[in-house]
């Protein structure tokens, strides 16, 4: 079967992982801009990073017939440096215009600070002005509930933002309900320790239904698994879910959300 991983950080992964994705039927991926595990020293580093996302990674993926798309944005972690954040905001349009850039992301909050909120609000306004899709990063662990609520308030206060063009990611059992209630898409991330497991993701699917849900590996430089989506497919199979539902969750749904950007075409 074919899958789409709508959130995976291939700049942090080996070329072998592209082969593993291809062998597993994951032939279309989307890579959000994120915090690389260290704070960058200046805006030049972001130019380099956005070039990686829009030039280097699509070429690396193409060797394995994997279609690579990306999201461009200023991540919440480095947004605490307001001066740097303002500089990065200035260069975003140049990279959003690139042919594989699907929208603004992943942007949102990390520790729910005032500076993070300021940079996030600016990017929400930019998305509204340019009619870009938005991919939202919600905070980790104990900060997730509060941050998700602040994010939802900010999005709802911008009347030009349509919820069906926003995916709020890294949702968990205590935040899914509020995200869905307001009409946004929601993403479940499969991390062994700090987010969800395949079993919990399928539990959420059974509880909340299959509408507006996308499941991703978010594989990056930390403890993560680029084949986590395949393991969740197997978890659904193990519980007897029909192939049609599996295809909806892992292919049709991300295709539907991402296809709102005319640049996107699923393999």
């Amino acid at each position: 079967m074919k899958l789409i991983d709508p959130h995976i950080h291939m700049v942090s992964r080996s070329t072998d992982d592209y082969m593993a994705l291809a062998l597993g039927g994951i032939h279309t991926i989307a890579e959000p801009a994120f915090w690389p595990g260290f704070d960058r020293s200046g805006v030049a580093s972001f130019h380099d990073y956005f070039n990686l996302l829009t030039v280097t990674e699509p070429a690396r993926a193409a060797r394995f017939k994997v279609r690579h798309y990306c999201w461009i944005g200023m991540n919440a972690k480095e947004a605490e440096n307001l001066a740097l954040g303002e500089q990065v905001l200035e260069i975003l349009p140049e990279y959003l215009d690139r042919p594989t850039a699907l929208g603004i992301g992943e942007v949102g909050l990390n520790k729910n600070s005032r500076n993070e909120i300021r940079i996030f609000e600016r990017q929400v306004a930019l998305a509204a002005k340019r009619n870009e899709l938005l991919l939202i990063h919600t905070p980790h662990l104990e900060d997730k509930l509060k941050g998700t609520r602040i994010i939802i308030d900010i999005l709802r206060n911008e009347p030009r933002i349509r919820p069906e063009r926003v995916l709020i990611d890294h949702a968990e059992e205590h935040t899914i309900g509020e995200i869905r209630e307001h009409g946004f898409w929601f993403g479940l991330t499969l991390y062994p320790d700090s987010k969800g497991s395949p079993a919990r993701a399928v539990d959420a699917l059974e509880i909340f239904g299959s509408e507006r849900i996308c499941i991703n590996s978010s594989a990056d430089w930390s403890v993560s698994d680029p084949l986590a989506t395949l393991k969740t497919v197997n978890e659904m199979r193990r519980r007897g879910h029909p192939q049609e539902l599996i295809g909806k969750v892992f292919y049709d749904n991300p295709k539907e959300f991402l296809s709102q950007c005319p640049k996107f075409s699923a393999a």
Binding site: E80, K111, S113, H140, L141, E142, K144, L145, K146, E173
Partner: peptide, 28 residues
Amino acid sequence: TRAIQLSFSDPTTEPIESALGLKAVGAW
């Protein structure tokens, strides 16, 4: 599951002044 998630969560609503040097540890 939801109850445990909520029990670990920050229930406040006000943004913090600065995130410098802070990271999530799993419990509020």
